[in-house]
Every structure is written in structure tokens, then in C-alpha cells.
């Protein structure tokens, strides 16, 4: 363990630090946030002061408190959607790779069809018909994200299924699910972990984009994308309140990407690759 800790590069430490700050802020929001996020405390877009470190927003609510509570909402939706997408995508892709035949063809073609429409456009189409509640949002994001996971998972599993140990398990007469979870999944875990990070960063950007367009998390619940939308009109008057939540999104996604970068480098060197292929 000590050995591994020493080999983590500085960039990855920066990433881990950024993620930790965001997660702590989200978890401890009720204790860390100085004010209630939905209470009007002063004039709209009041300047920074000792009382309000980041100033007030378009309605006069404390920006720092909203930022901390927003971390909770944004992270919660992104993490739940990504976890759901992963469960769905990984299980279906491994089943497709192990069962082959009609199941594989059917699932793959369905996946191709879902991927033939750009993600954001697809989400817009679905959200135009469904009620914009939290559950619907998470499920829509998860299903769209699962298509990407499915493709990677299937490619990984196809390579693994051709290995001798899977053949051996099959000849032993093991059941499909046993092969999926005991033989294939453990070997596909590291690349999938890197993909999890990428998908998580994407989910943060995606929910923020939807909220920014007014189609994600509905006000007054604070979330980072929605906060940019609330404060965007201030930009023209030189009020930078909209940039603060934007910056928070950027810090979180950059941090996740830094960690993913390190994970990807580690997996490629594990495989005996040249480190940057």
C-alpha cells in the first residue's frame, strides 16, 4: 500500500484533493453552509464582504451557501445516474458477450440505435414529453450513459470470453451468471474503473448543462448549472456571480479527469503497453 501511495503523481493528488473538497462540502452541507440557501439576505448581486464571502446572487441569496448545497444536488444526481448507468451497461454488455447469438445481436443493434441520436438531443426529446422530476432525470441520464458503457464493456468482454479460463469454466458447466461475475468481470474491472471516472465527469457536465437550459433540476433547489442560469444576466453588468458555480463545475470535472488520466496510464503500463498508447 505504501508503495502505491508513493507512485501517485502530483497531478493525481491535486485531483483527489479537488474531489475530496467537493464531496466533503456535499456531505456536510447542513453544518458547513453559513446560511439557508433559499433565504433572501440582502440586495441582489451584493458585493463580496466579510459577511458574505462570495457575495449574493440574483435574488439576494448567499452564493457560498447555495454553492455548498448545490454541490450536494449536482454530485448526488451525477453519482446516482452514473452508478445506475454502470450497473445497467456492464451487466447487459457482459451478458451479451457471454451469451452471443441473438441476445448479443439484439442488444448491440438496440445500442447502436440509441447511440445514433446525440445524447443531449435525445435527452431534450425525452424530457419534452416526461415530467421534469428528479427520478425521471436520473433514469434518462442513466439509460443514455449506459449505451457508452455497454459498448466499452462488450468490447472488453469479447476479448476476455475468448480466453482459456472462460472456456474452461464453460466446459465445467458453470452457469452464465457465474461466468459473468466470477470470470469476466474481475478481469475487466480496472479499465471499467477509469471509464467510471470519465462517465462521472460527463454526468456532472450533463446535469449542469440540462439545468442551465432550464430542463434539469428545477428551482429553487440549488444546483450548479441552475445557479449559472440564475445569475447569467449579471455578466453584462460585470457581475461575476455566474462564473462562481461555473468554476465549481470546472474544478470538479478537472479533478475527476486528472485522477482518470492517472488510472488510464496505470492500466496501460500494467498491460505492458508503452504508457501513452
Amino acid at each position: 500500500m505504501k508503495q502505491t501511495l508513493k507512485t501517485i503523481p502530483v497531478s493525481a493528488w491535486v485531483g483527489i484533493l479537488g474531489i475530496t473538497v467537493c464531496v466533503l462540502g456535499a456531505l456536510l452541507a447542513p453544518w458547513v453552509a453559513p446560511y439557508d440557501p433559499n433565504v433572501v439576505l440582502g440586495a441582489p448581486w451584493a458585493e463580496r464582504s466579510a459577511e458574505f464571502p462570495l457575495g449574493l446572487d440574483n435574488l439576494g441569496r448567499d452564493l457560498l451557501s447555495r454553492l455548498i448545497w448545490g454541490a450536494r444536488m449536482t454530485l448526488f444526481v451525477a453519482v446516482v445516474a452514473t452508478l445506475l448507468a454502470f450497473t445497467l451497461g456492464v451487466v447487459l454488455s457482459l451478458v451479451a458477450a457471454v451469451m452471443r447469438g441473438l441476445v448479443d445481436v439484439g442488444l448491440s443493434r438496440l445500442n447502436d440505435l440509441l447511440m445514433s441520436i446525440p445524447t443531449l438531443i435525445f435527452a431534450l426529446i425525452v424530457l419534452s414529453a416526461l415530467p421534469q422530476t428528479l427520478g425521471v432525470l436520473i433514469v434518462v441520464m442513466a439509460v443514455l450513459d449506459a449505451t457508452r458503457v455497454f459498448r466499452l464493456g462488450r468490447a472488453l468482454a469479447m476479448d476476455l470470453v475468448a480466453m482459456e479460463f472462460v472456456e474452461a469454466a464453460r466446459l465445467r458447466g458453470e452457469r452464465t451468471l457465474w461466468i459473468v461475475f466470477r470470470e469476466v468481470l474481475p478481469n475487466a474491472l480496472t479499465p471499467l474503473l477509469a471509464e467510471f471516472g470519465l462517465r462521472l465527469a460527463f454526468a456532472v457536465l450533463f446535469i449542469s448543462t440540462l439545468s442551465f437550459l432550464g430542463l434539469g433540476i428545477q428551482p429553487p433547489t440549488p444546483d450548479w448549472g441552475g445557479m449559472v442560469k440564475d445569475n447569467k444576466d449579471g455578466i453584462i453588468f460585470g457581475v461575476s456571480a455566474a462564473l462562481v458555480p461555473g468554476m465549481a463545475i470546472a474544478v470538479l470535472t478537472v479533478s475527476i479527469n486528472l485522477v482518470v488520466d492517472w488510472l488510464l496510464k496505470r492500466t496501460s503500463s500494467l498491460k505492458g503497453g508503452r504508457g501513452d498508447g
Binding site: F212, G225, K232, I235, I236, G246, I249, A250, T253
Partner: peptide, 28 residues
């Protein structure tokens, strides 16, 4: 890596703040 991680609207508002509000070069 940083640019990949930035949301489009953040980049857009940064540019607006720099190039429209602070130095009037572009139009918004």
C-alpha cells in the same frame, strides 16, 4: 485536459466577460 473538462457555458461567459464587458472587442 482543462478545456475538455470545462462546460461550454462557462467558457462562453468567460469570453463574454473578457471580450465584451472588460474590453469591448466583440458583440453580445
Amino acid at each position: 485536459l482543462a478545456a475538455v473538462s470545462l462546460p461550454e457555458f462557462f467558457v462562453a461567459y468567460l469570453l463574454i466577460l473578457w471580450l465584451v464587458v472588460q474590453t469591448p472587442l466583440a458583440v453580445f
